[in-house]
Amino acid sequence: MSKTNGSYEKSIVVDGLTKKFVGFTAVDGISFDVRRGEIFGFLGPNGSGKSTTIRMLCGILEPSGGNASVLGIDVAAHPEEIKQRIGYMSQKFSLYDDLTVIENLDFYGGIYGLKNDHLAGRKDFVLEMAGLKGREHELAANLSTGWKQRLALGCAIIHEPEMVFLDEPTGGVDPVSRRNFWEMLYHMAETGTTLFVTTHYMDEAEHCHRLGFIYQGKMIALGTPDQLKQQHMRGEVIEIAIDTSQEALRAVVGAPGVDEAYFYGATIHAKVGSVKRDMPAVGKHLKSLGFKGFSVQSVQPSLEDVFVNLIQDTR
């Protein structure tokens, strides 16, 4: 291995990275970097260029332009070197159902060239970390989704990668398992592993140290969750607890001072220029239309509010 662990400062440095396919540009000149030991959240709607970016960073898709280095290695020049030092976990978990827990670990250890004592030590570590001790000989098929997820993470890190890419790793997993999973990720980050995570869950995005938001191939926001809320949220947010019907949404959109409104959980969020000025007017407007039993309050904008706002601005 030509690069040692200490020879890079940032785990990922991306500068003007571009990928063109016939007829369209999937990734359009994005730039960002990821520090060592950071949990970087990479967000964006489906088809926005997330997967294409990950594939380029993993060294399996050649960029059309720009530069990217992972762990100090240029992805275009030395893709094979990167492969040995990164881990990858996909939404599908990529386990072999007809193999047992230990056989899955053996296999992934094997294809990364781990042997004998080293492999045994790593398997022990992973089983401990994932809480799979005692279930070594169960078929992966018989594990519940949460356990499969942990095993998949274990398989992805069996070769002690310095950097792990996680492509929507919590899809279809129950909230308790998700929470446990994130605790494992925090622990890994604390011990120096860099994590690059894509997710659809905005509460998970809040857990990330820093976030990048990609939309239509362009990076439209970058920063810590707090920074994003401050920089990309023009206006303030009020929350209306009301029956979430299309009728109610139309009423809110039509209220004076409301820039836009959207369902937010069991409520409706409305972006207004100023809470002080516009909140009473919204209440009055709804009453005048005959809505009853609702409440209006001012809330701190969440990341979801930020992203709705961002996408609306881009359009």
Binding site: S90, K92, S94, Y96, C155
Partner: peptide, 13 residues
Amino acid sequence: ERGTLENLIISPI
């Protein structure tokens, strides 16, 4: 079908 091919492609193999 299982999606394991993706992991094999990303691995050094």
